[in-house]
Amino acid sequence: MTTEFVDGVTAQSDALGFEPAVVYVPHPIQNRTRAEIDEIADRAFAQVMVLLKSE
């Protein structure tokens, strides 16, 4: 999820009484180069793995 949607995730989580596993990445995504996307993914990978192992 991009950082643009932090408030939306929080509001929806509170409304549903559910705490999702979320990794936030910089916003926006759609205008990034392939190299920028790769860098963002590389930085987020460790966080994703932690969330997957904790479930």
Rank of each mutant, 00 (worst) to 15 (best):
M1W: 09
M1V: 12
M1R: 06
T2P: 02
T2A: 03
T2Y: 04
E4N: 08
V6Q: 14
V6I: 13
D7I: 05
D7Y: 05
D7R: 13
D7Q: 14
D7A: 09
D7H: 11
G8V: 00
G8N: 05
T10A: 10
T10F: 00
T10V: 13
A11Q: 06
A11E: 06
Q12V: 14
Q12C: 10
S13L: 08
S13R: 12
D14I: 07
A15T: 11
A15W: 10
A15F: 10
L16V: 10
L16T: 10
G17C: 03
G17W: 10
G17Q: 06
F18A: 05
F18H: 08
F18C: 06
E19N: 12
E19R: 09
E19D: 11
P20I: 12
A21M: 13
A21Y: 14
V22R: 03
V22M: 06
V22T: 10
V22N: 07
V23A: 01
V23C: 07
V23R: 01
Y24W: 08
V25R: 00
V25S: 05
V25F: 07
V25P: 00
P26M: 00
P26N: 02
P26E: 01
P26H: 00
H27A: 05
P28E: 04
P28D: 03
P28H: 04
I29D: 02
I29N: 06
Q30C: 03
Q30D: 03
N31K: 08
R32I: 02
R32S: 05
R32H: 06
T33V: 04
T33L: 02
R34E: 01
R34C: 00
R34P: 00
R34A: 04
R34F: 02
R34S: 05
R34I: 01
A35V: 03
A35H: 05
A35E: 04
E36R: 08
E36Y: 05
E36K: 11
I37P: 01
I37L: 14
I37A: 10
I37V: 14
D38L: 04
D38I: 02
D38W: 00
D38A: 09
E39G: 10
E39Q: 15
I40Q: 01
I40E: 00
I40W: 01
I40H: 00
A41G: 09
A41C: 09
D42G: 09
D42W: 02
D42M: 12
D42S: 12
R43T: 08
R43L: 08
R43H: 11
R43I: 05
A44L: 08
A44T: 04
A44F: 05
A46K: 12
A46G: 11
A46L: 13
Q47Y: 06
Q47R: 14
Q47M: 12
V48N: 09
M49K: 15
M49Q: 14
M49F: 12
M49H: 14
V50D: 13
L51T: 03
L51E: 11
L52A: 13
L52R: 15
L52W: 14
L52F: 15
K53P: 00
K53M: 15
K53C: 13
K53L: 15
K53S: 15
S54I: 11
S54W: 07
S54N: 14
S54M: 11
E55M: 09
